Simulated scan of single mutants.
Amino acid sequence: VAEGSYTLTASASGYQSQSHAVTVGPGGTATQNFALTLPYGAIAGTVTDAVTGSAISGATVSYSGGSATTNASGQYTLANVPPGTYTVSAAAPGYTGQSRSVAVAAGATASASFGLWRAPFFSDGFESGTLNSWTGSGGLSVQSTTVHSGTYAAEGSTLNGSTYALKQLGGGYQDLYYRAYFDIKSQTTGFTLMADQTSGGGGIMRLYVNGSGQLVLWNDVTQLTTTGPTLSLGTWHAAELHVNISGLVVTTDVWLDGTSIPAFSTSSATLGLMPVGQVQLGSQAMLQIYDVVFDDVAVSTSRTGP
C-alpha cells in the first residue's frame, strides 16, 4: 500500500459497517482494529388514557438511552436503540406513571404501548412507614413483611376485630372511585374490607368478606347485600368500588383484579342524598377474627385501575 491517507471500512453480514481514517507512512505498517456492532433497533407505540382510550399528547416515554414525547395521536418512537432489554417508562401530568420491560432485536422495532390511569387525589402514604396520611386509625400497623409494592403495607391481625383507618376527604364527592389491594392471610369470621361513608361516618356502601370468604357488596343505607366471588387466601387482590349519587340515576360498580363484577353493578341503588365525605379501610366492628394486609390504596374521581 502506497503511503498516504485512506478510509478503511469493515463490514459483515448482520452487523453495522464501520469506517476509520488510516494514515500509512513510508515503508510503515498501519494497524486499525474494528469492533462491529449489531444494527440499532427502535421502540414505538402509543400512550392513551386507560379508561377512555383517548390519546395522551405530550407524554414522555423514556429508557436508559433517551426519551421521546408523544404527538397529538399519542404516538412516539425511540430511535437508534442498541439491541437489548430495557425498562421503558411512560409519564404524563395528571396520570400515574407506568413502566415495562421491552426487548429490542437488532434492526427491528419493538412495540410498547401504555394505558395510563388517572392519578388519585389520595394515596395511603404507607411508604412513610406510618399511618399519618389518614385522619384516624385503630388496630392497623404498618409492616414490611408482606407488601404489594414498595417497602411498607398496613396489616390488621386480630382475634377481636377493630382494625381500621379513616380518611376525611375534605368535601363531599358524589362520584367517587376507591381502590385497595389486599391479601387475606387468614380469617375465621367476616369483616369489612373498605367502605364509603358520609363526612359524619354514616354508612353508604362497603365491600365485605363473609365468613365463607366471599366478597359481598353491602348497601349500608338499605342493608341489602349482594354476594359475589370467593376470594383466595394468601393472594393479592385489587378491589375498586365506584359510587355515583350525583343524579337521578344512582350507580354502583365494583372491579375485582381489574374485572367488573356484573352482579355488583346497578343503576338503581338507593344510597341516600349525602355525598361521600370519608372512606374507611378495614373494619371497626368488634368480635371478628382475621389477618389482612392492605397496600396501594387510592381514592380518585376516575378509575385508578388495574
Rank of each mutant, 00 (worst) to 15 (best):
M205N: 07
G156I: 08
A154Y: 12
G139V: 08
L207D: 07
T163F: 05
S123G: 12
G190I: 04
A153L: 02
G139K: 09
E127F: 07
D220Y: 09
S199H: 02
G203K: 03
S162T: 14
V209M: 12
Y178K: 00
D124G: 10
T226E: 13
Q197C: 08
G129E: 08
T151H: 03
T163R: 14
D196H: 15
T130W: 08
W218C: 03
G139Y: 09
G156D: 03
S149R: 11
L166E: 11
G172S: 08
T135R: 00
S157R: 14
G129L: 09
T226W: 14
W134S: 10
T130H: 08
W218D: 15
G171A: 12
F122T: 00
F122Y: 08
S144F: 09
A119W: 02
V142K: 06
V216G: 08
L159W: 10
G201S: 06
S141C: 08
T145C: 05
S157W: 09
P120N: 03
Q187T: 10
D124T: 02
S157P: 02
Q223D: 13
T222D: 03
S199F: 00
T225D: 03
Y152S: 09
V221R: 11
M194F: 01
L169Q: 01
Q168D: 15
F191M: 04
Q143L: 08
G129P: 05
A153H: 00
F122V: 00
A154N: 13
F191R: 04
Q214H: 15
Y173V: 00
T198G: 05
A119E: 13
G202N: 12
S186F: 06
D124M: 08
V209E: 11
V221G: 01
V221Y: 01
V147Q: 03
L166M: 11
N210D: 15
T158K: 11
G125L: 06
L217D: 10
T189D: 10
G138M: 04
K167L: 05
T135W: 00
S157T: 12
A119D: 13
T151R: 13
T222Q: 04
E127C: 07
S157Y: 09
T188A: 14
T151W: 01
G156M: 04
T192G: 11
D220P: 05
R206G: 12
Y178F: 15
S212N: 14
A180N: 10
F122L: 01
T226N: 12
W218Y: 15
E127D: 09
P120Y: 00
G202D: 13
S199K: 02
L224Q: 15
L215W: 09
S128Y: 02
G201P: 06
D220W: 10
Y164E: 03
G138V: 05
G136N: 14
S123M: 11
A165P: 10
Q168A: 12
S199M: 01
A154S: 14
G125W: 07
N160E: 12
T198Q: 03
L193E: 00
Y208Q: 14
